[in-house]
Simulated scan of single mutants.
Amino acid sequence: MAERAVLEALKQSKAKVKGAAELSILLTNDEEQRELNQQWRSKDSSTNVLSFPQIEPFDPVVGILGDITLARETLIREAAEQGVTFEAHFTHLVVHGFLHILGYDHLTDAEAEEMEGLETRILASLGVEDPYAD
């Protein structure tokens, strides 16, 4: 699922693939995710996904790209709350995390609109419903 999500995100994003690349994806537990969130973002809580880019935003895709960590218990709970499958939510958050690795963000309304629109298109091509739909 993760590989398919990443490859589709590469295909539909602005990313320029320049050679072999490596990405680490870790499905962990809430406690470890909380520790990572505290260490790297000074937030003492778990979160669904964290991205740790090793390339500059929108640089060519080559070499070590970075790491994505996902909190399994949080994903299970959120999927149930949203009425979606774990697989759909996992796929969404892998796409979301990978777009952060590539340089996309959602700090401003314009950035959020661009990133969420791209996520929605990528997910649709993977058969996952729009997570931002009301």
Rank of each mutant, 00 (worst) to 15 (best):
Gly117His: 11
Asn37Phe: 05
Glu81Asn: 12
Val49Trp: 11
Ala80Asp: 11
Ile25Lys: 13
Ala79Arg: 13
Phe52Ile: 02
Leu102Asn: 03
Glu87Ala: 10
Ile64Phe: 01
Leu26Asn: 14
Ile25Arg: 09
Trp40Thr: 07
Glu114Thr: 14
Pro57Ser: 12
Val84Tyr: 04
Leu27Asn: 07
Leu26Ile: 15
Ala80Tyr: 05
Val49Leu: 13
Glu116Asp: 15
Glu32His: 14
Pro53Thr: 07
His106Ala: 11
Phe52Lys: 07
Leu50Ile: 12
Asp30Asn: 08
Glu114Leu: 12
Leu70Cys: 07
Trp40Lys: 11
Ser125Leu: 04
Val61Lys: 02
Glu119Phe: 04
Asp109Ile: 12
Trp40Glu: 07
Asp67Gly: 13
Asp44Leu: 11
Trp40Gln: 01
Glu73Ser: 10
His106Trp: 01
Leu118Phe: 01
Ser51His: 13
Thr47Cys: 14
Asp67Asn: 10
Gly97Tyr: 07
His106Glu: 07
Leu123His: 06
Ile76Gly: 01
Glu78Val: 15
Leu36Gln: 12
Thr108Cys: 06
Glu116Trp: 12
Phe86Asn: 03
Thr85Tyr: 05
Gln82His: 08
Ile122Lys: 08
Ile64Asp: 00
Val49Ala: 15
Thr91Asp: 03
Val95Gly: 03
Thr108Phe: 01
Asn29Tyr: 00
Asn29Ala: 01
Asn48Val: 15
Gly66Cys: 13
Ser24Asp: 09
His100Asp: 03
Pro57Met: 05
Thr108Asn: 07
His100Pro: 01
Ser51Asp: 03
Thr74Gly: 00
Glu31Thr: 10
Ile76Asn: 06
Leu27Asp: 02
Ala79His: 03
Gly83Ser: 10
Leu75Ile: 05
Ser42Asn: 09
Thr28Ala: 11
His92Glu: 09
Leu70Arg: 08
Arg77Ala: 04
Thr91Met: 08
Glu114Tyr: 04
Glu119Tyr: 11
Arg77Phe: 00
Ser125Gln: 13
Glu56Pro: 08
Leu126Glu: 00
His96Trp: 05
Glu113Thr: 15
Thr120Pro: 07
Ser24Trp: 09
Leu75Thr: 08
Gln38Pro: 00
Gly103Glu: 05
Thr85Glu: 07
Ala112Trp: 05
Thr69Ser: 14
Asp59Ser: 15
Asn29Ser: 03
Glu114Met: 13
Leu36His: 10
Ala124Glu: 06
Phe90Pro: 01
Glu78Leu: 15
Thr108Trp: 11
Ser24Ala: 06
Leu27Met: 09
Phe98Arg: 14
Gly103Ser: 04
Asp67Thr: 13
Thr74His: 08
Val61Trp: 01
His100Gly: 00
Ser24Leu: 15
Pro53Cys: 02
Glu87Pro: 01
Leu27Val: 08
Leu123Pro: 00
Ile122Leu: 06
